[in-house]
Design a protein around this nucleic acid. Structure first.
Length: 205
DNA sequence: CAATGATCATCC
DNA sequence: GGATGATCATTG
């Protein structure tokens, strides 16, 4: 990663404490992704999202993967087919980047990227989780939501800090201020995507 | 504030 | 050691 960044005249930080998105930014630049912070795919003409995936030396994901914000204001779609989460995950170019926690950004190593489209089974798994979250969100039962829910997809806070607030609708239909939440893919799920690539039979099970 | 990009810090 | 909840930077 350090060599790639230097080629692109991008600075190489000593750690991620204040540069959490650095790997993703460098890869976007390196691969010619266009969108920046816009709500569009990284490769608009291809409809492909780019996601880096931190993995350890064995190729096992170390972190969950952010997908998108969860709308808590009643604007969430009713059908999975229309879900923003689903669109974002319909075509993903995964770029594994190795380095255990503590490995400096410049020392991280890029692995073999692979283009992924959810299989029928994966789509169904994501759909089940999403529909359960949809129920809680649309019923306004936000207090029931935490990161323990969901087999593949989970919901976690997604704000500048714990004081961040967004508008939501509670269980009696009232507008309330609530913590912004996002959808994330569990590391256990992304691990199954890498399994077929790793050559490790155990990783596929 | 919300979208993009994620990892950190701490608890279990 | 892994997962949860918190946090950091940047852009429009």
């Amino acid at each position: 990663m350090g060599a790639i960044a230097r080629d692109l005249d991008i600075g190489v930080p000593d750690d991620f404490k204040r540069h959490k998105g650095w790997v993703g930014q460098v890869m976007e630049h390196a691969l010619g992704a266009e969108s920046g912070s816009a709500a569009a795919p990284d490769f608009p003409r291809l409809g492909v999202e780019l996601k880096t995936l931190p993995v350890d030396a064995r190729g096992v994901p170390l972190e969950s993967t952010y997908v998108c914000t969860a709308p808590l204001d009643g604007s969430m779609s009713t059908r999975w087919e229309d879900a923003w989460v689903r669109r974002k995950l319909s075509h993903v170019l995964w770029v594994p980047v190795s380095g255990a926690r503590g490995t400096s950004p410049g020392e991280r190593e890029v692995g073999a990227p692979f283009l992924w489209q959810p299989s029928v089974e994966e789509d169904a798994l994501l759909r089940d989780d999403w529909e359960a979250f949809r129920e809680l969100i649309l019923l306004g039962e936000l207090w029931q939501i935490d990161a323990h829910l969901g087999e593949a997809l989970q919901m976690r806070p997604k704000g500048a800090d714990s004081k961040s607030r967004t508008w939501a609708i509670d269980d009696e239909g009232r507008w309330v201020q609530s913590m912004p939440m996002g959808f994330y893919l569990r590391a256990s799920f992304t691990r199954t995507l890498l399994g077929a690539e790793s050559g490790d039979p155990e990783a596929r099970s």
